[in-house]
Amino acid sequence: MYHEKIASRSESITLDGYPCHVRIWDDADARAGAPRTPVLLLHGWMDVGASWQFLVDAWAQQQPALLQHYRLIAPDWRGFGQSLPDAPWQAAPRSYFFPDYLADLDCLLNHYAPSTAHLIGHSMGANIALMYAGVRPQRVRCLVALEGFGLPATQPSQAPTRYAQWLDELAQQREGASLVKPYASLEAVAQRLMRNNPRLPLPKALWLAQHWAAPDAQGQWHIRAHAAHRIVNPQLYRVEEVLHLYRQITAPVLAVEASDDSLGLFWKGQLTLAEYHQRLTAIPQCQTALITDAGHMLHHDQPEQLVHWLEGFLR
């Protein structure tokens, strides 16, 4: 089992009546001293805030005074991790809508960083951060987007089919169809994580599995995610709107991608790296970085490489 080098502590707060679990890495002595710059670590889809532990440990190893300079704050997005009811596999809302995450981030910043903060997001978390930085540019000091590719462009003509698919999947859920399968043991959850990311070693997979899933009374392990996250979003992804948000970003942005073409592997040509790079040109201050020998979970695969880029960029 992996042993974290820098332990986190947990807080539970309420965002507009919705429970939110937050993991924080800070220093008790520094807490009483000069204010430190808040850094919000925003996880991706079907992930949890604990997923940042490996990056935090690598960062602290390279910069021992890390927690004297920064306060690292990693929420579990609504419907993930511990930001959900005790039995998420038994009941779920109909859908999770992307604008709600922007509102949650706004509330999180009001609570932890009333002035400005650094945002570091992975995948879905990176997309939330980029869109938010265009809506509230004055709140973001700088932004790091890890594999924040966005989604393939859609056309209005797709709306009838998308809404029909959404209604069909809701009906399946009402009829008891399970969209998130249970696992027999913690080890089985770890094996699932390693299938998702072959570079993830077993000790890290076991450590992450205990945060990524939880057992029920019968000893079955369930992913800490509402089944509704598996239902198609009826809202179309409108690239033109996203690009208008990007143009409003005033913070410097570092867009980091992995050497494995995870975009091509996932979208099969529906969205290409060339198209993603073209979208980045809408951001006024944007530089790119490449992490070698890494896949989509690059903050797990090569945290030391990522820290090198973070150190230079945040300074």
Rank of each mutant, 00 (worst) to 15 (best):
E11H: 13
W207T: 08
A289S: 10
P38H: 07
S51R: 12
Q278R: 14
F54W: 09
Y2T: 12
G79A: 07
S178L: 15
G81V: 02
L186N: 08
Q235T: 15
G295P: 01
P88F: 12
H111K: 13
Q165N: 05
V144H: 07
Y276G: 00
N197L: 07
M46I: 14
Q53A: 14
V242D: 08
Q53D: 10
A255S: 10
P75V: 10
Q248G: 00
L265P: 00
Q61H: 15
A214Q: 12
G121C: 08
D57Q: 10
Q158H: 06
L193H: 06
L290E: 13
Y276H: 11
Q90K: 14
A209M: 09
A126Y: 03
G150Q: 02
F54M: 04
L314G: 05
A91K: 12
G295Q: 03
L146R: 00
Q90C: 11
C142S: 13
A177L: 12
R136V: 13
G33V: 07
W166V: 05
G264A: 06
E311T: 15
F54G: 02
F98C: 11
E11D: 13
R192G: 00
A32S: 11
A228V: 02
H222M: 11
R71I: 07
L143Y: 11
R230G: 10
L298I: 03
S10D: 12
A188G: 01
L193C: 01
R23V: 14
Q302V: 07
H229T: 08
R162I: 08
A65V: 10
A30F: 02
A214W: 02
G134S: 09
D261T: 00
R195W: 02
D47E: 11
L273P: 05
L40I: 03
D260E: 09
V48T: 06
D86K: 10
L200Y: 00
F97T: 04
P35G: 08
Y132P: 03
I13D: 07
L314D: 06
M131C: 08
V56S: 07
F149D: 04
H43V: 10
W212C: 06
H296A: 01
D301H: 05
A153M: 12
L146D: 00
S115V: 08
V140D: 00
G44N: 08
